[in-house]
Amino acid sequence: MSRRGFLGKSAAAAAGLAALAAAMSPLRHLKEGDLPSVEDFLQKHYKEMTAAQKARALERIRERVRARHRVEAVVTDPPPMDGVEYVYGLNISRCIGCRKCVHACVAENNQSRAPELQYIRVLEMEKGSIDVETANHHYTPPLVPRPDKWYMPVQCHQCANPPCVKVCPVEATWQEPDGITVIDYDWCIGCRYCEAACPYWARRFNFAEPLIPGDAINPKISYLSNRPREKGVMEKCTFCLHRTRVGRLPACLEVCPTGSRKFGNVLDPNSEVHYILKHKRVFVLKADVGTLPRFFYYFDERGSRYHDPIEPGPVHATGEGA
């Protein structure tokens, strides 16, 4: 071998080794427990797991929460209830835009605090208009509501025809029989197609390692909703299914000081949401995109708004019909 040839080859080999070292360098920062166990690695899709495998998966989640957060969690997997289809109603005549729902949701669902992740966005719009393009979600007045504005919280609409489910290349997200669209966080590959497909901007991506400070974690967790997520997976509102599937109301509803939020089983003719759909004036956001949301905005009669007093209207003295 010539000297020139030898030098060239060893330079190439050195470059190759350096590239390999660079490619492997993230492994140096691995801590114990960062790599999935063999059992984690072989875990099946949620819908393909047997009852025993599911129980093992829940147990692994419990162990991981104990190791990372030093909290004894209660991990459940409540199934959908028979004859139940959830519907949400939101009274936009009453919402004052205080954002209490946003932060109750973050606490309940173990969302990352840094970087911050929130499922609910509260849009502030000019009264008399509904233009989500120019709506503002960064409003910071000392007091809400501002008299010339109205407020519209937006979160996952749990569509009956969900575009986010259609685009998922690995079927990591699907619609449950009770209408809730869920994600198997262990099956998600993080391609973010669903985020792009959602017309309501209701899905969130964990760009960075989610951080939940020590005692802030909610220990009542379930597989499909609020268990701690990993970096690189999508997450979304699940109507708090760990609460609602055992009959309780969602966290965003319970915290609302105005009672604007209503939730229940639309198949039950005595339910609140059934009454709202039957008797109230109701609309869905972006009805034209054909997603058939299960999240309905409704409003009360004129004059019932707290800063919209009833004033006698102009007297119509036309001869028409009189």
Binding site: H103, E116, L117, Q118, L143, V144, P145, Y306
Partner: peptide
């Protein structure tokens, strides 16, 4: 009886929505 006003909780400072 009119429902009072209150201070809003902090707005979003998330990756896609924050400043």
């Amino acid at each position: 009886p009119p429902f009072g006003s209150m201070a809003p909780a902090p707005g979003p400072n998330t990756l896609r929505m924050g400043v």
